[in-house]
Amino acid sequence: MIPSEPVITVRNMVKKFGDFIANDNLNFEVYKGEIFGFIGANGAGKTTAIRILCGLSSPTSGEMNVGGFDIYRQTEKIKQNIGYMSQKFSLYEDLTINENIRFYGGVYGMNIAERKLRTTEMLERLELTAYANRKIGDLPLGWKQKLAFSIAILHNPKIVFLDEPTGGVDPITRRQFWNLIYEAVEKGITVFVTTHYMDEAEYCDRVSIMAEGKIVALDTPEALKKQYNAANMDEVFLKIAR
C-alpha cells in the first residue's frame, strides 16, 4: 500500500474524564483507501478516540482533521462524510430492512432516486432482496451485521468507522464480512476498524496498538511481527500488552 494523502490527521490528541486520561497525546495519520486497525485491551481508549473522530465527543486538546474537516468547528460536516457502525447493534429491530434503509438514507440526506438505486444494488449483493420487508429483529446476527455495515456506507462516505463489527459472528460469516470490507475499499472508502480477533488484525494495512490511553505500536502487521519476533499478531499483542 503506497501512502497517499491522509484522510485523518491526529496531532497531540488528549481526552480527560476528570483525573482520568483516556487518550494520552495520540499522534497518527490514516491514508485514503487504507484499512486501519485499532486494537488494544478493554479500557485502553479505543472507543473514546473513535467517538471523538466521529464528532460525537469533543477532545480536551489537540488538533484533528477528519475527511478534510476540523474536529472542533465542522463536526456536522464530518458526520455527513463518515459512516459508523457501533459494537452494539445499530439498526432498528422493529423496522423492516427497507424501512431501516429509508430511515438512514433520510438521515444522511440522500435523494430518493439515489437511495432507491443503491438499495437495489445492496440487497442484490447481500442476497437479501426477498427479505426486504422482514423485520430486522427476525434476522440472524450475521445478516444483521452485514446489513448494518452496508447501511453505514450507503451514502458512500469517505471513511467508515467499525467498532468491533464481528463479535460473536460465526467463522464463515466473519470472513464474508471482511469481503464486504475489501469491496468498500475498492470503491475508495477508507476503513477504520477495531477488533478482538487477532487474525483480523492481519487483514489490516496498518495496525495501531493502544495500551492505557497511548499508542504503543503502529505499523504494518508484517513489520510488527518482525519487530517483536512473533509468528502472528496474537503473539505481538500479548508481548506488547502484557
Binding site: 486494537i39 485491551a41 478493554n42 485502553a44 463479535g167 460473536g168 478482538h196 496474537d234 499483542f237 500479548l238
Partner: peptide, 13 residues
C-alpha cells in the same frame, strides 16, 4: 455463558 465475549486477548487469557 460467554464470559469472554467482547473481552480483549490479554484479559481472555
Amino acid at each position: 455463558d460467554e464470559p469472554t465475549t467482547g473481552v480483549d486477548a490479554v484479559s481472555r487469557k
